[in-house]
Structures are given as C-alpha cells and as structure tokens.
Design a protein around this nucleic acid. Structure first.
Lengths: 126, 126
DNA sequence: ACTGTGTTATATCATGTGTATAACAAGTGG
DNA sequence: CCACTTGTTATACACATGATATAACACAGT
C-alpha cells in the first residue's frame, strides 16, 4: 500500500484517501476483487483515526468503487454507472475549463494534457 | 447580472459566486475592464451577507481574475499565468480522469466532452 | 472463548462558513 | 464642507464539518 497523506493540505484526509484509492484503481495498482486493509490497520499504518478511514471507505462505497463484505472488509468492486459519471464529469469540467479558457489555454492544449494523463490509466480491461 | 445561488448546495456560497463569475468571463458575459457590483449591492441583490461577497471578490483577486480599484470597485482584470494554471489543471484532472477511467469512459469520450464545453468558451480574443 | 471484521453512538476540539454590527480611510458629487 | 458610497478591517455569534477519542455492538473465523 502506497498511501501518502499531506497533513498540511486543505483537502480533508478522508478525501485524500478516497482520491488515492481511485487513483490506484485507475493506474491498475488495485484490481477488482482486491481487499483493502481494515479500517483499523490502515488508520494505524498512516497514523490517523479509525473513523477517518471508515469515512473514506463509506464514501467509496456510496460512489460505487468498493463493496463491503462483512467477512473480508472493503473489496474493490466497481459499479460503472457511465451516464451518471459523465454528467458528474461535465459539471466539474465546466468550471475547470472556464478557468483554463480565461488563462488562454487552448482546446488543443487541454486535449494534450488529457492524453498525457490518460496514458497512465489503462481502462478496466488491463 | 445573472447570478444564481443554490442555498441547498454543499458548495460554499462564496465559491459559487467565484465560479459563476469565472464562468461569466469564459462565456464572454464579462469582459476585461468590466466593473462588478459593489459588495453591498451584490449582497443585497442575491440576499446574502456583504462579507460573503467580499470573500468571493478576495478569492478572485488572489487568483488573478479581478483587480480592485478603490474608486470603482472590483474590475475584471485577468492575470494569465499560464504555467501555474496548467499545473493546477493537471492536479485537478488527475483525479477527475481517474474516476472516468474507472467508469470505462474512454479518452475519446472525454475529448468530445471537452469540445462540447469549450464551444461556449471563446478564448480571450473574442 | 478469543480475535478481528465493519458499524454505531457519544463526546470533544479545531476549523470553516455565514451572518451581524460596527467602524475606518478614501474617493465622488452635491 | 458634507453626505454618500467604495473597499477594508475587526469582533462576535451560530452552525456545520473534519478529526480525534473511547466505547460498545453484531458477526464471522480460528
């Protein structure tokens, strides 16, 4: 597990955990069926409270990235609701691209940035 | 001024204001040199506190979208620091695209979404 | 029985958000 | 000069959120 937390960030710890796990899935370091550490283990490993990890797992469950098996713990299980995901992405992109447009960043430059980042993400088929 | 606030949103009011003003610049409804309403006027118009508007203007000033003229008030003035803006965008895109990748949204679909949104943003030359 | 899961319930503390009232320095227009 | 509006600052309060701490519960595995 390579999870690093920035305690000086303005981003909540449980959001950082959530993001890194999603990053981990996208970069193929976590696979469907993999079991995440228990809330107590992970909390101990990164030096934070159990409840903070639990909140991260709860969010991941609600967002459809893990399912919780009472016996095993949190298991990677992706619920690919594409339509919902695309609409959510559109909302986030609107503000992000507005900032880019104000800064004279071209459509082509954004495309190049997308490609660069997407290179590391293999899609679920990998 | 077409500024609408969602009081039920989990997004802070001053962030909503900031975003809508940035959207307004990108969609060419605000132009370089335009004067924004005074903090008291805008606060009264949308039904919130003066300090909340002030905070939005302060953030916009720090992010380089407006300059404050003691005589006029808040004036649209874009400080196009491209390098900084691109790095900021890369960080935001990483998580956003990771989610997309997990949901089996292809690189091409993201490009299409970018194009769709960018159609409304004219770039600063318009 | 014992341990390790997730889960739930309180409680506490710090921080962020939004409001409220007030005051200040400075520019504008009568 | 005077009244008014500008941004700015300070203080205070209520409320929600983030993070911690301690504790307990139901359930599964050994």
């Amino acid at each position: 597990m390579i999870l690093e937390l920035n305690f000086n960030s303005d981003e909540a710890l449980y959001i950082q955990l959530r993001n890194q796990i999603i990053l981990g899935i996208a970069t193929n370091r976590f696979h469907e069926g993999d079991v995440l550490p228990s809330v107590r283990q992970l909390a101990d490993a990164v030096g934070i409270n159990m409840h903070t990890v639990n909140k991260a797992y709860t969010v991941l469950k609600q967002e459809g990235f893990v399912k919780v098996d009472r016996r095993k713990g949190a298991v990677i299980a992706i619920d690919a609701n594409r339509l919902e995901a695309i609409e959510e992405m559109r909302v986030e992109l609107k503000v992000l691209l507005a900032k880019a447009s104000c800064r004279n960043i071209s459509r082509e430059e954004v495309h190049a940035l997308i490609d660069e980042i997407y290179e590391e993400y293999g899609g679920l088929s990998q």
